[in-house]
């Protein structure tokens, strides 16, 4: 079991949960009639939960997106798909462990699934390189997409990365080329592509597998041109600041300024839908999260199946062609 540190704003709820559990135990062991008291506490808990979660700041939402118990790609695949068979390797250099993919069935329908994968404990986290892909990861993803195109399978992609890996090998093997190439190729893949930001969507590392006909975000995920940390480092040179409280404040300010949460992206018309999470966040109920998401995916698949491959590609191009907000001087 993983050692779990609760987020600060979760603590009052966790405390109430503990009390409810205690009372239930007491009722059972002493054979007492406490159902009224328990009900009252549960009501209080639900109110508190709603109260806290409707007022979360962007920075707090990002903490939820990074929650160590949040469902990762393989968790969701396991809960939603049957007969998943994982496929490996980019056929050029290596198998990138930060990205997984393969065939699977969604309510019986054959699907190609691709997802960035994080790890929960230190060892797996390192094995998965914290969900940070190398060029071979982007090339592996594209190989699987081409495979899907060949066999006319829709593609479902889960994005969850703190960024493309910034390292020597990554540069030597063309990190920028790998991402750019994916963007160009994904624009003309002749099968439906549905992208879901399930946790973190950091910059080009996310976009490199993130171009699709439908782009969804889980309620507590984030997606931005740069992480709040990266933004703060550039704007306020946080690496030269000694005061941790000041750095924290800068990150919070960057998180607010970047407008990176699902509501922001919906408002800017960048995403098609916000997928609601169970009360308190996806980490509290993986099963329910998967259930809600599965329903949305099936609906989107039905819609996209109505288009010919030509219509699909034209609509996809048009979707991205119109993104941008600027003024024209007379």
């Amino acid at each position: 079991m993983i050692e779990y540190k609760y987020l600060d704003f979760e603590k009052p709820i966790i405390e109430l949960d503990r009390k409810i559990k205690e009372m239930k135990n007491l009722a059972d062991s002493e054979n007492l009639e406490l159902s009224k008291e328990i009900q009252l506490l549960e009501k209080k808990r639900d109110r508190l939960l709603k109260d806290i979660y409707t007022k979360l700041s962007r920075w707090q939402r990002i903490q939820l997106a990074r929650h160590p118990l949040r469902p990762y790609s393989l968790d969701l695949i396991k809960l939603m798909f049957t007969d998943f068979i994982e496929l490996h390797g980019d056929r050029y250099f290596a198998d990138d462990k930060a990205i997984v993919g393969g065939f699977g069935k969604l309510d019986g329908a054959n699907i190609m699934i691709i997802g960035q994968q994080k790890g929960r404990d230190t060892k797996i986290r390192q094995f998965r390189n914290f969900g940070m892909c190398h060029p071979e990861g982007y090339r592996k993803a594209l190989r699987l997409m081409k495979l899907a195109e060949k066999f006319d399978l829709p593609i479902i992609i889960f994005v969850d990365t703190p960024g493309a890996y910034p390292g020597i090998g990554a540069e030597e093997r063309g990190q920028a080329e790998a991402i750019a190439h994916n963007l160009r190729e994904m624009a003309t893949i002749e099968v439906p592509i549905i992208v879901v930001i399930i946790g973190e969507g950091a910059s080009g590392g996310a976009l490199g597998i993130g171009l699709g006909d439908k782009v969804f975000m889980l309620e507590n995920s984030w997606y931005s041109v740069i992480s709040p940390e990266g933004c703060a480092a550039i704007l306020w040179k946080t690496e030269n600041i000694d005061n941790p409280a000041k750095i924290e404040a800068n990150k919070k300010q960057a998180a607010e300024a970047l407008k990176p949460i699902a509501e922001d992206l919906a408002r800017l018309n960048i995403i098609d839908k916000i997928i609601p999470e169970p009360p308190g966040g996806a980490h509290l109920d993986h099963q329910k999260t998967a259930q809600i998401l599965k329903k949305e995916l099936l609906e989107a698949l039905v819609e996209l199946e109505g288009y010919s491959s030509e219509q699909l590609c034209n609509k996809r191009l048009e979707k991205y062609r119109v993104i941008g907000i600027y003024n024209e001087l007379r």
Binding site: L183, R184, A187, L207, P260, I270
Partner: peptide, 21 residues
């Protein structure tokens, strides 16, 4: 990408690359 236009800047990568396709 220009940080101050957030996600809109990131999406210009997709827009230009899709047209290059």
């Amino acid at each position: 990408a220009r940080m101050m236009e957030g996600i809109l800047s990131l999406m210009q990568m997709a827009k230009t690359s899709a047209l290059l396709a």
